[in-house]
Design a protein around this nucleic acid. Structure first.
Lengths: 163, 163
DNA sequence: TGTCAGATTAGTAATTGTTACTTCTTAGTA
DNA sequence: TACTAAGAAGTAACAATTACTAATCTGACA
């Protein structure tokens, strides 16, 4: 996604497209790994050495409030962020912590259900989050499981090097 | 739920039923407000002055790992706990923060969907969480909205005095 | 019953993600 | 070019949670 396109998107959302903001948005749009703030910070810092973690938090909150991105609540109490703002479900591996998107067909199914259930729930719904927890294919196939948290993370590092 | 029944449940789960643990479990079973650790601590402390917040955290983790209770990830990065361990959906008010259970009929619907989708998701699923965000009936009806976080909390205090 | 080993608790301190505040910089406008 | 306000960076504060340690309790067994 080009910087000019992003700039215009931000402007449309009445957010001033500063270089930092564009870079952060671009990074999020370019990954499906649902990174946390720290990871976004490290990634963007590469092109942008003066960046402050503070600015990352601020920017993410601004984006999330405008509905440009999605903030994901995790059980470890560390927020992760999703450049895909459309409501969609997630699979969370309880072993290595990776967060995966579901297949589009499943998302469509969930969206359909969402519409059906909407008026059977008290209160006005503005968003939803379908979450599945379990063991990802890789962790499931692993025969020798270590107890160490570090090892678990390393194990899925190919896909998770930015969590 | 009586203390002896709880003791037996804990024993079944191979958790030693200490007075603290029984009290914490009992408190959680007796509310539908999905309290956070601090609130559980304050509540149980009444009957149990020597209780440490530490013990509450430890106990909650033990329970959650055994599947006796459910830990709910919240966007504010403060965990809340649910004495109802069966998979079920939640409605979260984005204004006052209250967490409500859905109607049983909706839960049954979600459970049905869960079964249908299970083999269309990569990885072995062991749990799920359906979450709806929006404005609860009370917040929706409120005509004069304050910007203060404190006021928002006060507003729903009848139902939320333990969050 | 007394003793011992291991689990559990409470207290203190440390950690860590996140937010608050303050100052400096930048961009847009008159 | 000067003015004004938004945004960024740096430092410090905060709050939920965890780690560590010493004291206490429990249950098994001699």
């Amino acid at each position: 996604m080009s910087r000019t396109v992003i700039s215009n998107m931000l402007r449309d959302a009445r957010i001033r497209p500063t270089p930092q903001r564009v870079a952060i948005y671009r990074m999020l749009k370019g990954t499906t790994s649902h990174p946390k703030a720290e990871v976004i910070y490290e990634a963007v810092k590469g092109d942008f050495p003066s960046l402050s973690l503070n600015t990352v938090y601020d920017t993410l909150q601004t984006f999330a409030e405008s509905g440009l991105i999605r903030k994901l609540a995790m059980k470890e109490n560390v927020s992760r962020y999703d450049g895909n703002a459309a409501p969609h479900g997630h699979f969370v591996c309880v072993r290595c912590g990776r967060v995966e998107d579901l297949r589009p067909s499943v998302d469509r199914e969930l969206e359909r259900i969402n519409l059906l259930l909407k008026d059977r729930i008290d209160g006005r719904i503005i968003d939803s989050d379908y979450r599945f927890y379990g063991y990802c294919a890789e962790c499931e196939n692993e025969t020798t499981w270590s107890d160490s948290k570090e090892d678990r993370r390393r194990h899925c590092s190919d896909h998770l090097n930015d969590t």
